[in-house]
Design a protein around this nucleic acid. Structure first.
Lengths: 199, 199
DNA sequence: CATTATTTATAGCAGTCGATATATAAATTC
DNA sequence: GAATTTATATATCGACTGCTATAAATAATG
């Protein structure tokens, strides 16, 4: 049973991907409705009918990012054989992804809305929650490593997770500022020196 | 010889400091002229007569930041007895400053304008240049350490500088997201494990 | 005093923002 | 075919943006 009225003349998923690219490159505030309608080839009413609002469109684009480009980084926490190898792969994947122009350098979740007062509070909160969720994933993988004996029980799991998160998030800044892939891969390797040490 | 016309009824330096606070907390785009005139207690014409434009006011506020809060972090590169101690102090000072509410968590140069397309290109470029200048300072201090024998000549100075810059800049994100002072101090200590290792 | 110079407050400029009212076009259902 | 439903394009809406023209207020200068 086909839809009742006039069929939509654009591919919703393709439009969503283009919106993700725009938000990723320009951020939430700097991407205007006019930017979106131009790039997506839609009129404003079509965009609003399909996605609700700029904020809802951003949230959908964020989900798409997390399921595609973002996933390729954080899934290593679950697939690598050891915790050390997991973190190493996570950081090296970060270095590679953030320096591929796909379509923007750095992480959409870190860069697309500055964590500031005065902006869109809901969007900033959503991005912050996703960043913290990644830190918690890291923390849980490290805690598991302690339980399995890969790390000493004296390990300050929270601090170590924050350290690796600091490096992972800092790479977004370095990537946007033009750091090369080789440099960021070396950064990932340097970062691993903290493994097994007590601060 | 006093000024000729009607004297200005506000303290320019105090107004500048308040503007710095606002830009630091809310960023360049999210701080409107209305925000500034409200907080500084000025009418728009007074603000423009004293500072020229929003962009020029931001640049002055940025200079003030670099000379005050920013300086307290990076001056350790020149004052510490060894390069290792210099970097360690730099990172620990970062942890302490970014977690003091003075008036905002994290670094104004990293956070106050997202390095994005579509925003104020000149401002973004200015902030990027200042970040890169810090990386170069780090790099030169490490190169000096190689020359003095503190680091082995095989050291990849550029990559090591990028690594410490990554940690230093990443702390801005962690601080804005609520990381505690103790956690960031531990991050600074963990980061030093890379000293003297080859990636 | 009158003149000149500078700052002040009021009001509003043109432009952009996100979002929509209205009317037309294109499909299914009856 | 007529009626219904949905998508489209045009033309805005009110609110806000950075910024400024105008004129009143307050000082030194002559």
């Amino acid at each position: 049973m086909a839809a009742r009225g006039r069929p939509r003349q654009f591919d919703r998923q393709e439009a969503l991907r283009k919106a993700m690219d725009l938000f990723w490159r320009k951020g939430f505030d700097n991407t205007s409705i006019a930017d979106l309608t131009d790039r997506l080839g839609l009129s404003p009413p079509s965009l609003y009918a399909a996605f609700g609002s700029k904020e809802q469109l951003f949230r959908e684009a964020l989900d798409l990012y997390a399921q595609t480009d973002g996933s390729g980084i954080w899934n290593h926490l679950e697939t690598a054989p050891t915790a050390k190898e997991a973190v190493h792969r996570l950081l090296r994947a970060t270095a590679e992804r953030y320096t591929a122009s796909n379509p923007a350098r750095g992480c959409m979740i870190v860069l697309s809305a500055p964590q500031m007062e005065g902006g869109n509070t809901a969007i900033c909160g959503e991005l912050k929650a996703r960043r913290q969720e990644n830190v918690i994933q890291l923390e849980e993988r490290l805690r598991q490593a302690v339980e399995e004996g890969e790390l000493t029980p004296a390990t300050d799991v929270a601090a170590l997770a924050s350290y690796f998160a600091t490096v992972q998030q800092g790479m977004s800044i370095q990537a946007r500022d033009g750091a090369s892939r080789e440099t960021l891969l070396a950064v990932a390797d340097y970062a691993m020196a903290a493994w097994g040490t007590a601060p």
